[in-house]
Structure formats: C-alpha cells, structure tokens
C-alpha cells in the first residue's frame, strides 16, 4: 500500500492515493486520485463504501479534509460514488457530476443539505478553476461507458484522468502501476472495453473532443496508468475497437 506521485512541481501535485494491493479491496480494484494545487485539493472518483478510510489515510499525507475544494465524479457507478456520504461529512467540498445524475446521487444516501453541494456538469463539459486561475478541464466522454460521463484533463500535468476508459480488470499487486508495453496489456482491457464502452461512435466523438491536447499519462479509474508509447498505442487501439452496441446480437449475444 503506497501513494504514487504522478506529477509534482512547486505548486502542483497529482497522486494516485493508496495504490491498493491485490484482494485488499473487495470487488474490483479502483484508483483514487488527488490533485493538489498550492493549498487546494480536488479528489477524483473517491471510491465506494469501505474504501474511504484507506483513501483518507493516504490523502492526509498531503492535505487536510478542509483543503479539499471539489470532488469530481466521472460517472454515477457505486465504485465511484458509494463512499460519497462520508466525504461530504468530513469535507466542505462541492461535488461535480453530470447533470444526468444529480437527481440519482441522493439515492446513495447523503447527509442533510448535501444536495445543495452538487454541481451539475452540462453535457458540453465545464472547467474547474483553482484560486490562482489555473484550470482543470472536465471533458465530455459520454457513453464511455456511462450516458453522462466526464474525464478530467489537467493542463498543468497533462494527465488525462479517464474514468473507466482504459480501465483494466487487474487484481495482482505484482503488476506494475504503469503500462509501458501496451501489446502485453491488451488482454487486461479488451473484454471490458468491448462490453462496457457503448459504441465506436462514442469513442470517435470523444477522440474529436480530446483533440490534440498533449498527454503525459492516461490515468484510468481501474488498473495501470498509461505513459509514453503506451498512450498512442492505446488511442490507436481504441480508435479501431468495435464495442458495445456495435457488437450486440439478437438473443443477447455479443460478437467476440
């Protein structure tokens, strides 16, 4: 169990909090990220119920709960939102999530008046602005896989926090936290992306949205983080991948 710093300069830090070991977390292993800019923090996809204690302990290495200004949720799944109630109790953070989910999130059980802290991200995306004017971009990635889905692009570190896109169903702690050899990694992600990513068109639209932003890493919510050559290899692979409804067959079958 350890924190993994992905980027650090004198004002800005991106860290994968509490890189969990195999079988430590029931269900699928998930990544929680902290971005700390000067004295302000943003938590990305803080995790399901039961994950919060480990994530909080890891986060306290860098900042206090009072410093967390925002929690940004890529989508509405329980492995992302399940622990939100506790985070709302210990921070004063605003919660950013797609406008599609603001009326559903309270069903996870939120503290009184917490609904007032939800910020609905419009379909076209939004920008989170730090106190000094620096920004995080909330890029639309709808249907990858959720209907209302956002990635966070950090122009300072040039890291794309990609939610479930690029996610791997990895369970072994022995594996590297980074993807350096994409061909060897494909087997970890192919099945997940074919089934969970809704369509090739959704991928193409997302690629057009991402444009030519420089990428130092792609950091998904599950599994290893892409860097170097693995980034372009992954993008080339996902560009050509038939997935979701493209593969759906009568009788509930999917093309292999």
């Amino acid at each position: 169990m350890r924190n993994l710093e992905l980027y650090r300069d004198s004002n800005h830090l991106c860290v994968l909090l509490h890189e969990t070991e195999g079988n430590e977390e029931e269900g699928i292993h998930s990544n929680q990220y902290l971005i700390l800019h000067r004295e302000e923090g943003v938590l990305l996809d803080p995790g399901g119920f039961g994950v919060m204690p480990d994530v909080l302990e890891a986060m306290l290495d860098y900042c206090t709960p009072e410093q967390i200004k925002a929690i940004i949720l890529s989508h509405q799944d329980p492995d992302i939102v399940g622990g939100l109630a506790s985070w709302l109790e210990i921070t004063q953070a605003q919660v950013w999530i797609s406008r599609l989910w603001t009326r559903f999130i309270p069903h996870y059980g939120l503290p009184p008046k917490a609904v007032e802290r939800l910020i609905a991200i419009p379909d076209e995306g939004a920008r989170f602005t730090w106190n000094d004017g620096t920004e995080l971009e909330l890029l639309p990635a709808h249907f990858l896989h959720s209907e209302g889905n956002f990635h966070v692009y950090d122009p300072t570190s040039q890291i794309l926090f990609s939610g479930d896109l690029g996610a791997a169903e990895m369970s072994s702690a022995a594996l590297s936290p980074f993807v350096d050899d994409f061909p060897a990694h494909v087997c970890q992600i192919a099945g997940f992306h074919r089934r969970y990513m809704v369509s090739h068109r959704a991928v193409a639209v997302w690629r057009a949205t991402l444009g030519d932003r420089p990428l130092s890493m792609i950091a998904p919510q599950h599994g290893a983080i892409y860097r170097g050559r693995a980034i372009t290899d992954f993008l080339a692979w996902i560009d050509e991948l038939p997935c979701g409804v493209d593969c759906l067959q009568p009788g509930g079958r999917f093309l292999p």
């Binding site: 119920f49 039961g50 919060m52 204690p53 480990d54 306290l60 506790s86 109790e89 210990i90 503290p111």
Partner: peptide
C-alpha cells in the same frame, strides 16, 4: 487513521 475513518464511515 483507518480505524477512526472506518468508524466515521460506519457512523454515517
């Protein structure tokens, strides 16, 4: 820290 946080989470 984990024990205290877990207590907090359970209490919530």
């Amino acid at each position: 820290l984990c024990a205290a946080s877990a207590l907090l989470e359970e209490q919530v």
